[in-house]
Design a protein around this nucleic acid. Sequence first.
DNA 1: GTGAAAGATGGATTCATTCTAAATACAAAC
DNA 2: GTTTGTATTTAGAATGAATCCATCTTTCAC
Lengths: 132, 132
Amino acid sequence: MYRNLHLTPQRKSVYDIVSQSADHPTAADVMERLRQAGHKLAYATVYNSLRYLTDAGVIQELRMGSGAARYDARLEAHQHVVCTQCGRVDEIFEIMPAGYAEAITNETGYRVDHVDVVAKGLCPDCAKSSRH
Amino acid sequence: MYRNLHLTPQRKSVYDIVSQSADHPTAADVMERLRQAGHKLAYATVYNSLRYLTDAGVIQELRMGSGAARYDARLEAHQHVVCTQCGRVDEIFEIMPAGYAEAITNETGYRVDHVDVVAKGLCPDCAKSSRH
DNA sequence: GTGAAAGATGGATTCATTCTAAATACAAAC
DNA sequence: GTTTGTATTTAGAATGAATCCATCTTTCAC
């Protein structure tokens, strides 16, 4: 995949699951899908692999609200929306208005290097079924 | 404080701690400050109170990255910056460019009702000491 | 006052994650 | 090709945050 990436068989199988899943799986989801695919890794190995891949920059860790961290193999800059009803997570590619990060730097004095956006609301399905 | 707010002595003491703390305390911080102030509440009571106050809309719960939730008594619309080195959290009052939430709605089909922004970077102090 | 409902308490429990110590694999040095 | 060392995996124990539970207390309506 990338140079300097030490992909053991376990790490590769974890990477494969994450990159083939469109729904931002949690560590537990990854475990389960590995098991379904006939692999059996220790819990610690899944966590270690997810961290390794995150540090290596080939996947991203998403933390949105409470609950388990989720993982995403899409690397393009993007943000996320979470459904407050069913928990579904989707990508947002609409880019943040330029200048906002700089405005934050000016206001706070922080050296901002990254801005995470998490939108919350109802996904199309839940919005439809809640419209009574 | 507000109408329809059932402030028991315990809830009031939790509210007082949160509103007098500028550093976005965690539940454990609140516990400790209560103890220092001479109150002793059960852990569950602190959590219940924080949730009650959050639901009542008089404080906000902040979840940024891993670790414990933090609480904030400032109610004006605002966002947060976290220092990736020391964990300090500050407020951002610079408002999000209008139209961004709507752009998200258009792109994703979600009925977006709220957008959380968490900026990450180095706080002024850490930035200074890391400049070698 | 009596009883129902809401709230508080301490301890046990759950869930996500990390740690630990032992077992394996793998690569470089001889 | 055996030895030595370093990185990785493993199972299970341990941790930290938060919630649950069963019991006791308070509050309020009547």
